[in-house]
Design a protein around this nucleic acid. Structure first.
Lengths: 300, 300
DNA sequence: ATAATAGTGTCTTTCAGACAGTATAGT
DNA sequence: ACTATACTGTCTGAAAGACACTATTAT
């Protein structure tokens, strides 16, 4: 193992003389999409509470994008891994360590941050609302859980010589009290000889800092896809839940209604019944279920 | 828009006085998984040629990991986006600009590169072998297309109080002429109350530089997943192909045999027949097909 | 004729979608 | 009794898996 290079250095010698500053160095941030599902007030003693999907955003107190809302995040330190940086941020924002978290995508456009060249690794985290504490975001002056909606707004298909181009505009709306943020993200799916290519651009944006609108839209799409074939939805649930509440979570994320009987068949193997029931509901009590850890079907 | 910050600076003033060197700066590389499928020699005038999945690797000429094989890649420059850096690398290695490419995952362990802190954004590219030129990799002294195989080697399931832990070891083998590289990657899937968590580690590695064995294994899994529900396979095909050749590509990537009739039903909507046939085959000629750009089902 | 591949028909099982029905607490 | 939800049964049609069958070329 005393192999030497052209300068006659062994690997150990080479490494100790290595000067990292010869190469371009840039900043890397992690930005977190922290989702949860909350229940609104009941309208009627009998009715079930309405649910909504929420995303944690932070109001920027300084330039750039001062007073606009951004994803919680921050610079990755030299001595921490990407995952560690993401966990650290998560801990800072939510005060919970054991949260589901997965890497989403890394955004690398040259001018995405006006300050300097910043590459952003985005992560998605899912939290059960009942384990969240309000006081959590103490250290962050202006953090708020925004209600999120993302709907297809426009669709245009152009047939070309070798295929077609599908342009879709998704309207993203975020609201919290009197704050109303919105953005339009255009995805261009080009299909020709070989297959498909997707590009994503912000065409309109109000109140959302940086390219974060695009990241949010991407994260929602990922969440929608993944809820269909994995068990991530359970990260948004308390330990015990009724099947109707589970169904509501699916419906909110997918933004559609689902037929009860079919839904129950679909998730039957993912849950186990307990012998507990809800009470004082004003209607027939429902059985409480929990996640079935014997369920096995792991895709990534 | 003359909003000022605590130091009384406008956004423009703030940006021009911004000093990026106050924060940790680190190096970012793009590393490319460039896959193709090649045909071996025919064994018999009648038999179809065997196919194999190949991956482009580069022999390192310098420290660290001197003489070991690594993924083609390099540092991201300050003035290029991640995608541009990946395209540039792809162009350098293959001499083809229009190749399918997608971002895979960003690897951020602190000690993954012994030189300095390097974060690696990995990309996967798929090339049709017939459009590749041998002379392509001129500028790279020691590039080679390795035959890849990745098989489940060990599996162990431990039942815990709240769920179970599934440990799987995948054996990765790469070979090119007299070069035989191998690695074992252990994935640990932890399932408890809330759902699933996956970790990935290299437990054994011979001849593969850095943490690239892990990246390769990850890329192969992604390829296997995505070939099932997208059209990416067509990026590995020439413009016109027989359905048997398409099936072979699926079989090589998925590492299983498929029933012909069922396969054809499955991909029926993704292809269009042409009026051409193969000739001089020693058996019944087969119809040539091409990708059907009207096929619409885009998931990412 | 034969070897090897090309290509089709159909049975079964499984699963998703639709819908109609029954059950039960709390006021 | 009534309301709102809880929960189940079953029909249908589509898709996945298994397998058997027919067709066609170069030698």
């Amino acid at each position: 193992m005393s192999e030497v290079n052209k300068q006659g250095l062994t690997e150990a010698e080479f490494l100790s003389s290595y000067d990292a500053s010869k190469y371009d160095r840039l900043s890397v941030t992690v930005d977190m999409l922290i989702f949860t599902v909350t229940e609104e007030e009941k309208k009627n003693y009998r009715k079930l509470p309405e649910k909504s999907l929420r995303l944690l955003l932070i109001r920027r107190g300084s330039h750039p994008y001062k007073n606009q809302w951004a994803l919680p995040g921050g610079f990755v330190h030299l001595r921490e891994s990407l995952d560690e940086a993401a966990r650290r941020k998560l801990q800072e924002e939510t005060n919970i360590g054991e949260i589901y978290m997965e890497q989403l995508y890394t955004w690398g456009a040259v001018d995405r941050d006006p300050r300097t060249r910043v590459i952003c690794a985005s992560y998605m985290a899912l939290v059960d609302n009942s384990s969240l504490r309000i006081e959590a975001s103490q250290n962050v002056a202006d953090a708020a859980w925004f209600t999120v909606s993302c709907k297809l707004d426009e669709e245009q298909k152009t047939v070309t010589a070798t295929g077609y181009i599908l342009q879709q505009v998704f309207k993203l709306r975020l609201s919290h009290e009197d704050q109303e943020l919105s953005a339009a993200i255009k995805t261009v799916k080009t299909v020709e000889n070989k297959g498909t290519r997707v590009e994503r651009d912000i065409v309109e944006c109000s109140g959302i800092a940086f390219d974060h609108a695009k990241i949010i839209e991407y994260g929602i799409q990922r969440l929608r896809n993944k809820i269909e074939y994995t068990d991530i939805a359970f990260n948004l649930m308390p330990e015990r839940f009724t099947l109707t509440k589970l169904q509501q979570v699916y419906e909110i994320i997918l933004d559609t209604g689902l037929l009860k009987a079919n839904f129950r068949r679909k998730i039957a193997d993912m849950v186990v019944e307990t012998d507990e029931y809800t009470r004082d509901a004003g209607h027939r009590p429902s059985k409480l279920f929990r996640f079935n850890p014997k369920w096995m079907k792991i895709i990534e």
